[in-house]
Simulated assay, not measured.
Amino acid sequence: MPDLLSIGVTLLLLLVVYLSLDIMGLFNWGNKFQVEGRTVLLTGASYGMGREIAAQLSSRGASVILVARNVSKLESALAYAQSLAKSPSTQRFHLISADVTSEAENKRLLAEATTWNGGRVPEIVWTNAGSSVPDLLLNTSVETMRSQMELNYWAAAYLARETLTAWLYPTTPYSPQSVEKGGQSEAPRHLIFTSSVIAFVNIAGYAAYGPAKSAMRALADGLRNEILLYNGARRSSTSTGQAPAPFDVNIHSVFPGTIKSPGFEQENKTKHAVTHLLEAGDPAQSEAECATACIQGLEAGNYSTGTNWLSKLMRVSSLGGTPRNNWVLDICGQWVASIVWIFVLPDLEGKVWGWGKKEGMPARKTELS
């Protein structure tokens, strides 16, 4: 009878080897997020991580449509993206000024982007617009609570609905002959949501922002499952009525943590002292580092991507029914995270409790309704 200890050690060594090879990228079978020669529509593109995403997509050969409200910042971001173009003679760039919190504006910007793109809906749509106004709930006005939800959730939901409708049910229906049964006539489309690490674990001071990003995460989870209806319909031999699209649609989410950007500096103006205390040890990334991590996760084919070690740890600790990027790594990560939380949770709670004990009742803004 084989020695159980030897078997256990052998299995453990095999697991270590597998994890090592996977971490080195030897199991990553090619780029799952090809952007060269394709058009990307990117909201929140005028500064911060969005500006860097636009530039890095340009350097990979994509044509980019940059969307934000501030025209002068958009023009600067567009020039920056153009300067890094992989093929300047063939890549194209366009800017659209729009308020993405409006459903009508999302309809308009997608229509304008499609017209500019020769009547073809952009193949990649990235809902990146967002901002945080952190503070304690009792110091946050109802107006701010609503505006946080409008920008960080509804803007993404509006654009996602418009994009998926345009891809799957175009004004001019697809021809049944354009669909190859069991295959793809065209490369996949990609719909990407920029959420936040706060969607995994909310903390004191993000009472308005956290729920909006959590709602976005839930939306992406639901859409990833829902889109299988349409991807499956392309393989059907009995479909009637509307012809399916000649491509699959892939849903993705990225979850940045602290980004050293003008937006972060603005957040710190309203952030409560206890929130600063809780975030004191968090890793911070530059705008370029965060954009790079997001795109690398997409190129690896990940459904959900954390951008630094803390975001990745929070992701695996909160997966629930969310699809795994890598079953072995994510399951092992969950084991590690479950142990880490034994120490981290009491520390977080102790800091908040200790702040209240030391400082007393937090001051409340009297002008709030």
Rank of each mutant, 00 (worst) to 15 (best):
M1T: 11
P2K: 10
D3I: 07
L4S: 14
S6N: 10
L15F: 05
V16D: 08
V17G: 00
V17E: 04
V17Y: 02
Y18F: 13
S20A: 14
I23H: 11
L26K: 09
F27Q: 03
W29S: 10
G30C: 05
Q34S: 10
V35P: 04
R38K: 11
T39W: 02
L41E: 02
G48N: 09
E52N: 04
A54G: 11
Q56T: 03
Q56E: 05
R60N: 09
A62G: 10
S63I: 05
L66K: 10
L66F: 09
A68P: 08
R69Q: 13
S76L: 11
A85Y: 01
A85L: 07
K86L: 12
S87F: 06
P88C: 04
S89G: 13
S89V: 02
F93E: 05
S102E: 11
E103I: 02
E103M: 07
K107N: 13
R108Q: 11
A111C: 01
E112L: 12
G118L: 10
G119C: 06
V121F: 05
V121L: 08
E123V: 01
I124S: 08
I124F: 07
V125H: 11
T127G: 11
N128F: 02
N128S: 03
G130H: 05
D135I: 03
L137E: 13
L137Y: 12
T140Y: 01
V142Q: 12
V142T: 14
T144Q: 06
L151A: 10
A156H: 15
T163W: 07
A166C: 08
A166V: 04
P170R: 00
T171S: 12
P176A: 00
P176I: 01
Q177P: 00
S178L: 01
E180A: 09
Q184W: 01
E186Y: 06
P188L: 04
R189Q: 13
H190W: 07
T194K: 02
T194C: 07
T194H: 06
S195Y: 03
S196G: 06
S196D: 08
V197L: 14
I198F: 02
F200K: 01
V201M: 11
V201L: 15
I203V: 11
I203N: 03
I203F: 08
A204Q: 04
A207E: 13
A208E: 06
G210F: 05
K213V: 09
S214L: 10
S214I: 04
S214A: 15
A215G: 13
G222Y: 09
N225G: 14
N225F: 09
I227S: 06
L228N: 09
Y230L: 10
P244D: 01
D248F: 02
F255A: 10
I259F: 07
Q266L: 14
Q266K: 15
E267D: 07
L277R: 06
L278R: 01
L278P: 01
E279F: 00
A280Y: 07
A280W: 04
P283D: 11
Q285N: 11
E287Q: 15
A291K: 02
Q296V: 13
G297E: 06
N302T: 01
S304Q: 14
S311D: 11
S311V: 03
K312S: 13
R315Y: 15
W327T: 12
W327V: 08
V328L: 15
Q334M: 12
I339A: 14
V344R: 03
P346W: 00
E349Y: 06
G350V: 03
W353S: 11
W353K: 12
G354Y: 05
E359W: 06
M361H: 10
M361V: 14
P362I: 04
